[in-house]
Amino acid sequence: MLDALSLLQQRHSAPSRQLGEPAPDESTLRTLLEAAIRVPDHGKLVPFRLIALRGGAKRTFGAWLAERAITRNPDLPESKREKERLRYTFAPLVMVVVARIDHDSGIPEIEQKLCAGNVAYNILMGAYAMGFGAQWLTGWAAYDQEVAHLLHLAKNESVIGFVHIGTPQGDIPDRDRPALDDLLSEWQR
């Protein structure tokens, strides 16, 4: 296992198309998710929940999404139709991270969504630390009301991301990273 700083310095997403079996077993997944939900949570609202997609259910969900993509855009080129058809066939596990917004709490919605986003990021970090690969994807499906209905989301819930998890099926090169000096400034009055 990597130490925390090395983990941050080395973590990178593994494209979902390059993820295969095995996924974390039940015990490992439970350990990963128990760690992932340890996030900053203003007001202790727990403004998130998780949905696991795997096996036949994952493939059924993916097939339905492909049909929905074509319904949304009948002019979708064949190459994009194929991409939609295959999207959920690679990684053996997809965790849907859902934000649950408590509009009566007084805690700003953005803070609640960031809390849920931290869960998704912790899943990425934890999967990498455990030797798995993961990719956090959103795309049109994260914002589609029919998809929300299919996932049985309540009116106060929305998809933060679909985190695809599996074992990298080859070397995953890192991408270029921004230079800190281009991003850091010092505030002065």
Results as ranks from 00 to 15, higher is better:
15 P>N: 10
144 D>F: 07
24 P>T: 08
137 L>N: 14
131 G>K: 10
123 I>H: 03
70 I>E: 13
186 E>L: 12
35 A>E: 11
93 L>E: 03
187 W>L: 11
160 I>A: 01
7 L>W: 06
118 N>W: 01
121 Y>V: 03
86 L>W: 00
89 T>S: 15
60 T>M: 11
143 Y>E: 12
66 A>L: 08
130 M>G: 05
73 N>Y: 10
11 R>T: 08
18 Q>G: 05
3 D>L: 03
44 K>M: 10
60 T>W: 03
117 G>K: 06
36 A>M: 04
1 M>Q: 11
110 I>T: 09
105 S>K: 00
170 G>Q: 15
51 I>K: 09
76 L>Q: 07
156 N>F: 04
34 E>K: 13
18 Q>S: 12
20 G>P: 02
171 D>N: 12
100 R>A: 10
65 L>H: 02
62 G>Q: 04
172 I>H: 05
132 F>P: 03
49 R>P: 01
61 F>G: 01
93 L>F: 07
13 S>A: 15
60 T>G: 09
159 V>K: 01
124 L>Y: 01
133 G>A: 08
114 L>H: 08
40 P>D: 09
115 C>G: 02
150 L>K: 13
67 E>P: 00
146 E>Y: 09
162 F>N: 00
147 V>K: 03
186 E>H: 12
133 G>D: 06
164 H>I: 06
27 S>N: 12
47 P>V: 08
139 G>L: 11
55 G>F: 11
31 T>R: 12
152 H>T: 14
36 A>F: 04
2 L>T: 07
27 S>M: 10
94 V>W: 04
167 T>Y: 07
125 M>A: 15
12 H>F: 08
153 L>N: 05
13 S>P: 07
152 H>R: 14
155 K>Q: 13
92 P>R: 05
126 G>Y: 02
97 V>Y: 03
98 V>F: 05
103 H>C: 00
172 I>C: 06
104 D>K: 13
91 A>E: 04
104 D>G: 11
132 F>H: 03
178 P>E: 07
6 S>A: 13
142 A>D: 09
114 L>D: 00
52 A>Q: 15
113 K>A: 10
56 G>M: 06
71 T>M: 11
11 R>C: 01
